Deep mutational scan, measured.
Amino acid sequence: KAKLLVLLYAFVATDADTICIGYHANNSTDTVDTILEKNVAVTHSVNLLEDSHNGKLCKLKGIAPLQLGKCNITGWLLGNPECDSLLPARSWSYIVETPNSENGACYPGDLIDYEELREQLSSVSSLERFEIFPKESSWPNHTFNGVTVSCSHRGKSSFYRNLLWLTKKGDSYPKLTNSYVNNKGKEVLVLWGVHHPSSSDEQQSLYSNGNAYVSVASSNYNRRFTPEIAARPKVRDQHGRMNYYWTLLEPGDTIIFEATGNLIAPWYAFALSRGFESGIITSNASMHECNTKCQTPQGAINSNLPFQNIHPVTIGECPKYVRSTKLRMVTGLRNIPSIQYRGLFGAIAGFIEGGWTGMIDGWYGYHHQNEQGSGYAADQKSTQNAINGITNKVNSVIEKMNTQFTAVGKEFNNLEKRMENLNKKVDDGFLDIWTYNAELLVLLENERTLDFHDLNVKNLYEKVKSQLKNNAKEIGNGCFEFYHKCDNECMESVRNGTYDYPKYSEESKLNR
């Protein structure tokens, strides 16, 4: 008799109507990190870190770059004969040098303040090359056809396309004075040089004057150069050297050249137009028929994500570079809930034993079982409120962090190594801060989002509990077992918050 009662009780308990509160689960393989956990499985997430590029040089917003090819900045601007293909260059979106560009200054020497000139050019998007001192009329008392084997072109001695090597005419090199007034309405880049012979005999042979000088002056520039005559090792078949100089001439300003020898005179100059998204990159990537809004030396990035880990040097509207390998923000729920887990921000989770793959029309909802059958029903209101809140948060985070910009490298010469090392340390410090901030932001927001979901499920549970009161009992896994019969209409009233407690209280009292 006792065995019969136990079996009867078990049958009745199993047959009781139930309603459970749960949440969506799926077959997603997404994982995120939080402050407290690593690799948390979630139903949905968004990636904030771009880690792919196309490996190509592309047009930037429809404008092609200027590819210097086998030449570098120095060779292009001075007019190395091997860089003749660059003479027609007028406009570009950015400038590309190759790491091993070999054609710079063909006659050995240095372009002074080269690093600063590169910085200036990094904001130039177009130029006009014009004859600042016409070759045939500007130097009537001097020979202007100086050439050298060091600047050979097609097997013949030649010289820079933008400079003139002035030497004596006959047996004399009379003092020369020439000036140019900038009437271009924009900055003009003027380049010139000073020749330093290897011996007094060479000085006399070329310029006749043993104590020659070169003077260059404008409103913002004033220097006097004296040739340094000295024996030097042979470089590119030359014992002599040429140093090259430049200045930016403001609109309306005048530049005056005065010399008694050794002047490498300007022939062509450049009127410059600035462009905020221009820059110089060093890259071996090849040019393709493609378009982008962000270019790196590795390749083009076409992404609206706020961060990238491809390269710190970028041109155009680019994500911020960070050292992170993963920045994924959760938008959905835990896919593998932890039992009795309390989140960092106070939300209680884990009283549900598992997510439901059968509930596909919402994030949170119900599963019921009664004599009429069983089924899932999503709670659309709480789901939609959660979707709206999380979507707004993700968009806000992306908008705040998605300050796209150009980031170019800084140039230092060989004598500025300590400054370069200090600059690298400062840049590394800023990069570490950006990386830390980005990672911390994602970790915190992921923790908040998961706790937010847990709290929403808990609130749904409490909503049902407050309606049923003692007409049902909690069975410990997020479910309630009714003390009365609850048909589909009754189940719907529980879900929509209109459950009639008094209607079922007498039946429940008897069954309790």
Rank of each mutant, 00 (worst) to 15 (best):
C71S: 03
A259T: 09
I95A: 01
A89P: 09
T260E: 12
G193F: 04
L7S: 14
Y107C: 02
V96F: 03
S93R: 01
W139G: 06
L163S: 08
V40Q: 12
E136W: 00
G146E: 10
G146P: 09
C20E: 01
A25D: 00
S52P: 00
E250G: 13
V96P: 03
A64N: 13
I256R: 01
I264C: 03
H153W: 08
V216W: 08
F225E: 04
I95L: 14
H142A: 07
L86V: 10
R154D: 03
E228G: 11
G79D: 01
G155S: 13
T143H: 06
K38N: 09
L48G: 04
T247W: 12
A259N: 09
G261D: 08
A105P: 15
V194N: 01
S45Q: 05
A217N: 00
L163N: 03
P174G: 14
L57Q: 09
G69S: 10
L127E: 01
P266Y: 01
Q204S: 08
E119I: 03
L78D: 04
I112R: 09
N262A: 12
T31V: 08
Q120P: 00
T177I: 10
F159I: 04
T14H: 03
L206S: 05
I229P: 05
G55C: 02
L176D: 00
Y244T: 07
Y180W: 15
F159V: 06
K1G: 07
R224M: 07
L164Y: 12
I229A: 09
E202S: 05
W246F: 09
K169I: 11
E258F: 07
I21H: 07
Y221T: 10
K234F: 11
N178W: 00
G155W: 09
Y107F: 12
S205G: 13
D201P: 02
L248N: 02
Y94G: 08
E128T: 13
Y114T: 13
A230Q: 13
P88Y: 14
R224C: 10
E131F: 04
L48F: 09
S172H: 05
L57C: 09
S179L: 09
R232K: 14
W267C: 11
W76H: 08
R161I: 02
S172I: 10
P108I: 01
S199W: 10
A25L: 01
C71H: 04
F130S: 01
E258W: 03
N141K: 06
V235L: 14
G55P: 02
S158E: 15
Y107Q: 02
V42K: 11
P81V: 03
L48T: 06
S158W: 01
I35P: 10
N222C: 09
S28E: 14
N141G: 09
I35D: 00
N72H: 11
I112N: 10
Y114K: 02
Q203T: 05
R232W: 11
S219L: 12
A212D: 01
H142E: 03
H195Y: 05
G261R: 00
A10T: 13
Y107M: 10
P81R: 07
C20W: 14
N183E: 08
W76I: 10
S208T: 13
R274N: 11
